[in-house]
Amino acid sequence: MNEHGRHAMETMKNHDPESYAQIADPETHFSTLGREIQDRIWSLSEDLIPPRGQETPLEYVGLVNMAKLRAREIVYQEMIYDGLPQEPEEMEPVPSQQDEQS
């Protein structure tokens, strides 16, 4: 299992344990998902890498690396995080009457 599959598996275990428990063979499921995520990241990275311009080689390497990181962020959101149940939003504490009288 690659790093993407491990990340997806740990994320689901921690944030959606009920769905994780329903997966008959988590090792195979997340190994396959990890490969799919990797393929999608590579494909999207190619689309996001800008054409070579007037930048220095080091600057261009930075642009390529940023494109790869952005692709990973997008793919993780689509293929891992969007499928998780929504976390309850933290609410601001409501002031009590005693706090208001102070």
Rank of each mutant, 00 (worst) to 15 (best):
M9F: 10
E10Y: 10
E10M: 11
T11I: 02
M12P: 02
K13V: 09
N14T: 04
H15T: 01
D16E: 04
P17G: 06
P17F: 08
A21S: 14
Q22K: 13
I23R: 06
A24S: 12
D25F: 13
D25A: 13
D25P: 04
D25W: 11
P26I: 02
E27K: 13
H29Y: 15
H29F: 14
F30N: 06
F30W: 05
F30V: 09
S31M: 02
L33H: 01
G34Q: 03
G34M: 05
G34R: 01
R35H: 11
E36G: 09
E36H: 10
I37F: 01
Q38P: 00
Q38W: 04
D39R: 09
R40S: 07
R40A: 12
I41Q: 00
W42G: 02
W42F: 12
L44E: 08
D47V: 10
L48D: 00
I49N: 06
I49H: 07
I49Q: 07
P50E: 03
P50C: 00
P51I: 06
Q54L: 03
T56P: 06
P57E: 11
P57Y: 06
P57I: 07
P57K: 04
E59V: 05
E59D: 12
Y60E: 05
V61K: 12
V61C: 04
G62F: 03
G62E: 13
G62D: 14
L63I: 02
L63V: 02
V64M: 14
N65P: 01
N65Q: 13
A67T: 04
A67Y: 02
K68F: 10
L69W: 08
L69C: 05
L69M: 10
L69S: 13
R70H: 12
R70Y: 09
R70I: 05
R70N: 12
A71S: 13
A71V: 08
R72G: 11
R72K: 12
E73W: 05
E73G: 05
E73P: 01
E73F: 09
I74A: 07
I74C: 02
V75F: 06
V75A: 08
E78V: 00
M79I: 06
M79F: 03
M79A: 08
I80G: 05
Y81G: 00
Y81L: 11
Y81Q: 00
Y81C: 01
D82M: 09
D82S: 15
D82Y: 03
D82A: 13
G83D: 10
P85Q: 03
P85M: 06
Q86E: 15
Q86F: 08
Q86P: 08
E87F: 08
E87D: 08
P88H: 10
P88G: 07
E89Q: 15
M91A: 11
M91D: 05
E92F: 10
E92C: 02
E92N: 07
P93V: 09
P93L: 13
V94H: 12
V94N: 13
V94S: 13
P95S: 04
P95G: 09
P95H: 06
S96P: 05
S96V: 09
Q98G: 03
Q98E: 15
D99A: 10
E100C: 11
E100K: 15
E100A: 14
Q101D: 11
